[in-house]
Amino acid sequence: MTVDIGTGLLAVGAGLAVGLSAVGAGMGEGPIGAAAVGALAEKEELFGKGILMTVLPESLIIFGLVIALKILGMAG
């Protein structure tokens, strides 16, 4: 399978879109998750709120994924 440089760069771009947004989401979720677990230890009923707060930054990666798919679409 031969791939020209342009397509290759598109693939790298798609990878960066998902990868970097995942890193961003992870950096956001880490401290929130830690705080949420801390709160859970005190009060178990907070599970619902805790999970809501923890996954908030996750929409980042979804946007990254959409962009990656768009880029791959350009490669045809």
């Binding site: 996750e58 929409s59 979804i62 946007f63 994924l65 959409v66």
Partner: peptide, 15 residues
């Protein structure tokens, strides 16, 4: 924007 991102979030069903 959360309405859009919530709906896009269902892309995880595929991913």
């Amino acid at each position: 924007p959360s309405l859009l991102s919530n709906i896009l979030s269902y892309a995880r069903l595929m991913a």
